[in-house]
Amino acid sequence: MPAIDTTDCPVRMVFTGRAAGNLASHVGDDPFTVLANRQRLADVLGLKPEQFVWMEQLHTNTVTVVDKQQDAPVAATDAIVTTAENLALCVLVADCVPVLLADPHAKVVAAVHAGRIGARNGIVKNTVEEMLKLGARPGSIHALLGPAAAGESYEVPREMADDVEKHLPGSKTRTKKGTPGVDVRAGLVRQLMSLGVTQIDAHPADTITDETFFSYRREKETGRQAGVIWLTGGK
């Protein structure tokens, strides 16, 4: 696959699937295999592996601003924001919602790990607020939500669904079996709109049922796909 030409595009956003291989170093996979997968992804994107910025994702609502390359994953954070060009912000998922945010005019981008807990506790809201501090405007932010667990498959206890709905309105749903469920993507779309972010695209894939993606709920021990976003320096 040829490298992606980013010459005239100020922001690039990419999601991977199972075909790209496991990109996570914390799930027990062979480290050399993970490094090879990351190298292949970098080659396809026209980047170098050292340009990738990873996170130590802990289902927090913590947002961290980065401005340079990192030797290790950014500690204890579930969202990273930058105004620096050619830093590829990465989020790893296997059912959680990968959220990529960009204001191409203000030159501010972010990658967010929005699982049920983090989304419930405001990780996306906190990220948007951090972007605004750096000059972004809600009406200029484009949000891209990636493949994730769909509400029709994401079954949870009724009390849990009620709790998430209380903090993330629009997320409570029913599964295809008629049981209580949570649709984190739907809740996040509603939350983003309430924040004034209206340029929203959401990938429809359900990682729990679509085997072209890794799924923790389906497989338990599994790899991770990624969302990647970066400022290219283009116009």
Rank of each mutant, 00 (worst) to 15 (best):
V228N: 03
D162Q: 13
L47N: 05
A114G: 01
K68D: 02
N126W: 02
R174D: 00
A110L: 04
T207Q: 07
K48A: 14
V124N: 12
C9W: 03
L89N: 07
A106I: 12
D95C: 00
K48H: 13
H142G: 01
G139D: 14
T60A: 10
G46C: 06
A79F: 03
D163Y: 11
I117P: 00
Y216V: 04
G223Y: 12
D43S: 15
T62A: 13
A110M: 04
Y216G: 01
V182Q: 03
A84R: 09
K48S: 15
L47C: 07
G151C: 12
V74R: 05
P157E: 11
A72C: 03
D201Q: 13
E155Q: 15
Y154R: 08
S140T: 04
A36W: 00
D78N: 15
T77G: 02
G233Q: 01
G122P: 04
N126Q: 14
A75V: 07
L195V: 05
P204D: 09
M160E: 14
H113K: 10
E221Y: 09
A111N: 02
G196F: 00
T16Q: 05
R137T: 14
V63W: 06
R174Q: 14
G135I: 10
V53G: 05
M193K: 15
R116N: 01
V66R: 07
E129V: 03
T82L: 00
M193L: 02
A202P: 02
A24Q: 02
V108C: 05
G181C: 08
E155V: 04
V34R: 11
V11L: 06
V34M: 12
K172T: 03
P98Y: 10
A102T: 02
E152Y: 15
T232P: 06
V109K: 03
H26N: 08
D162N: 14
G196Y: 00
D183M: 04
E219F: 04
A24L: 07
D30L: 11
K125M: 01
V189L: 13
C90D: 00
L101N: 06
D8R: 07
V108F: 06
V81D: 05
T62N: 10
V74N: 03
E159I: 12
V11M: 06
A186I: 01
V182C: 13
V124H: 13
R38D: 03
L168F: 06
D206F: 09
A24H: 07
R224E: 11
M55H: 03
V27Q: 14
L192Y: 07
A119L: 07
G118D: 03
W54D: 10
R40C: 00
V184A: 08
T198M: 12
D162R: 13
H26T: 13
R18P: 02
A75K: 08
K68W: 01
T212M: 02
S153N: 13
N126L: 00
T64Q: 14
G196A: 08
I80M: 01
E211T: 15
M1F: 09
L41D: 11
I4H: 08
N61L: 00
H26V: 11
K48Y: 03
V14N: 03
N22V: 05
T179P: 02
W230Y: 15
V11I: 08
A76Q: 05
K235S: 06
L132R: 04
M193H: 13
V14A: 10
L101C: 09
N86A: 04
G151K: 14
G170Y: 13
V97M: 11
K220L: 10
V112D: 10
